[in-house]
Design a protein around this nucleic acid. Structure first.
Lengths: 227, 227
DNA sequence: GGTTTTACTGAACGGCTGTTCAATAACAGG
DNA sequence: CCTGTTATTGAACAGCCGTTCAGTAAAACC
């Protein structure tokens, strides 16, 4: 009875169907479109054009435009954070790790002119999370992750005697807010705030709050991608 | 010849035609709609409904939806800043003035639950200014105004011996970025950052950077509206 | 009261774009 | 090859919404 429907049996085998790959590809394309045209102006046909397919295909893999865009934002967010965390694994000292995190949190200074900079997605995440409960939860989760990462480093640093005693949670809120606020100016290309001044200000503030020299925060490793 | 066209003569008299008032009323309504539904979802008929008029009327006073929304954002921004600056005129001490500015820059804690909080407009300003050159310029101007206001206060404070010597411009960038970053969390109702913790953090940071006690920053005047 | 200008509206137009669907191509297994 | 499942698409549908416009009410002026 069951064996006669062998197709049903196969359905249980999670063969690496093209589906997952395609979905990922589409999400990537969607993220690019959002970064380029903004969330409001992102059309489903733009996404299709990016992967050289017909608009109908997009709806074959996603139930609606709404769902696609939301998932694309969430997708990118997750990637970003994976990058930040992974970029700090091997660092030993708290100061060095914090330096890396800050470094990774600054938008790249050079290729800011191209309008598909994926950092721009954050702006859309913020505006949209007001109206999308799922995205709002995701955003809160990631911000919380960011803050607890910072707080963890600070706790380690204090315990190791690298930092002076401060409230780790308070510091985490401060630093992550500072990063966000400065990133806005950088992304919007405010002439008063370049990527390097952002970096300096973050490092400076962290150093002064934690009682460390700024030098000890600056690592030697190449900058990683991140928020 | 001219006198025969007496209507033309009247055209030169800037009679307080209903036009200006109506435009203002519409802009106000538009700002409300944007705050409530978000810039993308704002429909022209929503604005019309708010003032109990037909959608066609909106297009009678504004050339297009695009123009209306852009102007509405600019309008609100200007109002906000007028409020901030005007709220500080009479304060004498630099510390007190800075305290007022910070106070005015925090979203009100109580009526945050209502979704038409006009602070939310800032998020839309940021996302849209990427694609709207006019709005971008306006935003840059206001941010610059904010920073130079802060810097001016700091300069006064240093000269008066109230503050310790710091780079005023650098401090201005820092504080305004901190305000922006914290405001995002507050507006998005992140449980970790309430309006009062935002206020505390801003005051605290300012005090520590400027070498003043936080107490001297806290004024007695009621909080004013602002960003 | 008649006439001109201003304020306003209802209804229709039109385009854009998300979505559906039936039809086709690609492909794997037998 | 045949067959059934999966992947893909072109074309048509459908609705929403910005915009237009001709027409009406209201007010101002003579």
């Amino acid at each position: 009875m069951i064996t006669s429907h062998h197709s049903l049996l196969f359905a249980f085998v999670p063969r690496p169907s093209i589906t997952e790959e395609r979905r990922r590809q589409i999400l990537e394309a969607a993220a690019g479109v959002i970064a380029e045209r903004g969330l409001c102006e992102a059309r489903i046909s733009d996404v299709a054009a990016r992967i050289g397919a017909s608009p109908a295909l997009i709806l074959y893999y996603f139930p609606s435009k709404e769902a696609l865009l939301a998932e694309a934002l969430a997708f990118r967010d997750q990637l970003f954070f994976d990058g930040v965390e992974q970029g700090m694994e091997e660092e030993a000292g708290a100061a060095a790790r914090l330096g890396q995190l800050i470094e990774a949190s600054c938008p790249p200074s050079e290729p800011l002119d191209r309008p598909d900079n994926e950092w721009l997605l954050w702006l859309d995440v913020w505006t949209r999370s007001r109206h999308d409960a799922d995205l709002s939860a995701q955003r809160a989760r990631l911000d919380d992750l960011m803050r607890s990462t910072i707080a963890g480093i600070v706790k380690d640093g204090i315990k190791a005697g690298e930092f002076q005693k401060v409230d780790p949670d308070r510091f985490a809120i401060l630093l992550s807010a500072l990063i966000d606020g400065l990133a806005i100016q950088v992304l919007l290309q405010d002439p008063a705030v370049s990527a390097s001044t952002m970096r300096d200000l973050c490092l400076d503030t962290a150093a002064s709050q934690l009682g460390t020299s700024m030098k000890s925060l600056v690592g030697v490793a190449p900058p990683k991608r991140g928020r």
